[in-house]
Design a protein around this nucleic acid. Sequence first.
DNA 1: GCCCAGGGAATCG
DNA 2: CGATTCCATGGG
Length: 277
Amino acid sequence: MTCKIKNKDIVISDVKCLDLENTLFCGQAFRWKKTGENTYHGVVLDSVADIEQSGNEIIFKNMSIECFEKVWKKYFDIERDYEKIVKGFTSDSYLKKATEEYYGIRILHQQSFEALISFIISQNNNIPRIMGIIERLCEGFGTKIGEDYAFPTLTQLENVTVEDLSVLRAGFRAKYIVDAVQKIKNKEVDLEKISEMPIEDARAELMKIKGVGAKVAECTLLYGFGRVEAFPVDVWVKRIMAEMYTDGLPECTKNYEGIAQQYLFHWRRNSSEFKDK
DNA sequence: GCCCAGGGAATCG
DNA sequence: CGATTCCATGGG
């Protein structure tokens, strides 16, 4: 990656395998808005970004180098060599198709608390409604930043009750959000320690929270902790496994199962190859 | 009205 | 144990 400052913008180039459209709208993050042909608007931590992709260049508009280094470099997983990883996938014919049709998906390294709460909300739910609930959560409880809202912090949520959360219209999931907040607050579940645990222990730790089962735990590890070997199995991935991988995932996905999962998930949901199925 | 959605807890056999 | 049922809400 090369990083230049032009006017007040950060311009990065030579980032291989990063397509904003595919990455931001493949169901891993729920707060991005498309603002134009190649422009996107989003919030991470307390930083708001307007980003534009033109070919091999990604432009972070009106952003300081400090902010880019501190927040966005990690968020877009810039240091990881996706080109190499994705090339490794092409020995499998289905993954070859998926990575060709939807090239440039990266796993976004989100804030762990946000990922946890977001995927608690995602259970037995559909993506448009998940987005709405999260938007109401941010507007109702997060810090206002200009026209935007940060995702609420643990402190901002530490005293909320199920009744307080009724404005979200999250249904039965509200009590799970409260349980997650309480257990993190009293250190029954320690997000700091989870990032250093072997993945089996990390899973078990997250599953102490009500409403966190295998799938939500796996999503939290993948998107909130950057554990790219985590493999969330939702209804779509279940279909993929039943239709294409009855003997399990191919060897070429080893240690990168979560990245493979993201390509397969997005491909199976959106490709015309599976129209009306 | 029915079915389904990036599931999980509670209950039943 | 595995299998079934219920959980809130909204869109198709």
